Structure formats: structure tokens, C-alpha cells
Amino acid sequence: MNLENNIKDVISKKLEEGIVEKLIAEQLESGVKNALKDLLGSYGEVTKVIEKQIKSVMIPYLEGYDYSEYIVKLDHVMVEVLKSTASENKNILDNFKDLMIPLDKKEINISEVFEEWKKHVAKNVETDDLEICYDDGEPTYYDVTASMSVEEYERPRFSSSMLRGTVTFTCDEDEELGFELPVYSWTDIDKDKWRIDSGFLESHNVQSLRKLSEFEIFLMRLKQAGTKIILDSDYSTDDEVEVVKRPEVEWS
């Protein structure tokens, strides 16, 4: 009986402290949270209602908006992207086409090669640091200096009939533009004529067509045709070259 009385006393005390109301409130709060979670979830009824109202406002507005301005901008962006991605491929195709044109030239004077170098310098010299001439009406850059020199190496002991050398092409105003062309000559066969060494083709091949200049393609064609170079001028020569590019001048 004492145990039963104690149980009754505990229950009465808890009831008086409002435990029932507290538990109901906790469960009610939990039920409301779960219900709201379901209603506001991805597939909840409230979510569907809100989504329906948003669609009813946004879709007519978006459908009636004038996108012509953005279409023009998009068209411009697409053109620029196509130009940038196609330019490298165009250069490859142009170089490949030029490289495949047969060169029926058994011999060429070194002075002719130098003329091609001068054309290359005129078109490709870096102009950022060049001075501008204002004397003759339209502003131009002052002429730059294109140079060519030939250096012969000592003949190796094991082959006294073979002579090696290097033709160096430079531009005083643009050091990055110049490069060296390895050449050789069999003195008992070629006399005073030179051949382009195969080392040139090792660094200038089909895989690098994207980067090759017109002058380098010209030299590759000489090599492929087996054209011999005749030294018809001094081993060292230079000349003034008119720059093709014109400066952009802002008149104040």
C-alpha cells in the first residue's frame, strides 16, 4: 500500500507541475515543424502554391522582355570567339599550303635570301619602342636595320672536305626577331655553295606550322628542294628597312 501511495503521490505531483501540458506542447511544436517541413519541402503543398504564384509573375515578364540587345552582344562575342579559335588554324593551313608549293630552284644567291629577311623584318618588327617620324606628313616609324652574317667553323679533322657554318639573321631594333640558320658545304662537290643543314628542319617541322613565319617557310622550302646557297655578297651585310606598320598617333 505504501508503494501504491508513493506512485500516486509522484503522479499527482507531476500533474500539478504541468508535465502533461509540457509534453503536449513539445509534441505539438514537433508536429508543426514536421508539417511545415512537408508543406515547404520540394513536393509540399505550400511550395507548389508559392511556385505557382512566382511562375504567374515571372514567366509573362520574361516572355515579353526584349532580348535583342543581348542577341547583338552574344553575336559579337561568338564572332570574336570564332575568330580567335580559327586564326591559329588558318595560319597552319596557310603555312602548309605555302610549304607544299614546289620550289624549282636549284641555286639561290645569299643576297636573295637577305631580301626575304628584309621583308620579314619590315612586317614583323616590334614597334613598341620605335621612334616616330613626323617629317613627311603621315607619321611613320624610323627605318630599322636588318642584318645578315655568315660564320665559317674550322673543318673537323676527320672530314677535311666538309665545312660548316651559320647564317645569322638579326634586327638591331628587335633582338627577339633574329635566329640562326645552320649550313654546310662539301668543298670538293659544292665548291663555294652551301646547303641548309638538317638541324634547321628538326626545330622547324610540320608540328610547329602554327608558329612559323613566312620567312621560315621560305627557308624550309629551300631545304626540301635541296637548293644550294651561293655567297654572292660579303659575309656580313645590313640594310635599312621601312617598317610596314604605321603608328597610331593622337593629335591634341
Rank of each mutant, 00 (worst) to 15 (best):
M1A: 12
L3T: 15
E4L: 09
K8P: 00
S12K: 15
L15H: 06
E17Y: 08
E21S: 13
K22Y: 08
I24R: 14
E26W: 03
E29C: 09
N34G: 14
L36C: 13
G41H: 09
Y43T: 15
G44C: 04
T47R: 12
T47H: 04
I50R: 11
E51G: 14
K52E: 10
Q53D: 03
Q53I: 11
Q53P: 00
I54T: 10
K55I: 04
V57G: 00
P60R: 05
L62N: 00
E63P: 00
G64P: 00
Y67M: 06
Y67L: 10
E69T: 13
Y70K: 14
Y70S: 10
K73V: 03
K73M: 06
L74S: 09
D75P: 00
D75T: 07
H76L: 05
V77E: 08
V79E: 01
V81I: 15
S84W: 02
T85Q: 02
A86P: 00
E88Y: 08
E88F: 03
I92T: 04
F96Y: 08
D98Q: 06
L99V: 04
M100L: 06
M100I: 04
L103K: 09
L103V: 03
D104N: 09
D104L: 05
K105W: 00
K106H: 06
K106V: 04
E107A: 04
I108K: 11
S111A: 11
S111Q: 08
E112T: 12
V113Q: 04
F114E: 07
E116V: 04
K119Y: 02
V121D: 02
V125H: 07
T127V: 15
L130K: 11
L130G: 08
E131S: 11
E138R: 13
P139S: 10
Y141A: 05
A146P: 01
A146S: 07
A146D: 02
E151C: 06
E152H: 13
R155D: 01
P156N: 08
R157N: 02
F158S: 09
F158Y: 03
F158G: 02
S160G: 06
R164G: 02
T166L: 15
V167F: 10
T168M: 05
T168D: 09
T170S: 14
T170C: 08
T170E: 13
C171Q: 05
D172Y: 11
E173K: 11
G178E: 08
E180N: 15
E180P: 05
L181H: 10
P182M: 09
P182E: 12
V183M: 15
S185I: 12
W186S: 08
D188E: 15
I189N: 07
K193G: 07
R195I: 13
S198H: 14
G199A: 12
S203F: 06
S208A: 15
S208Q: 15
L209K: 09
S213P: 01
F215S: 05
E216Y: 02
I217V: 14
F218W: 02
F218T: 03
R221G: 03
K223N: 12
A225V: 03
T227C: 08
T227I: 02
I229R: 09
I230M: 01
I230T: 08
L231G: 01
S233F: 03
Y235L: 04
Y235W: 03
D238Y: 08
V241Q: 01
V244K: 14
E248N: 14
W251H: 04
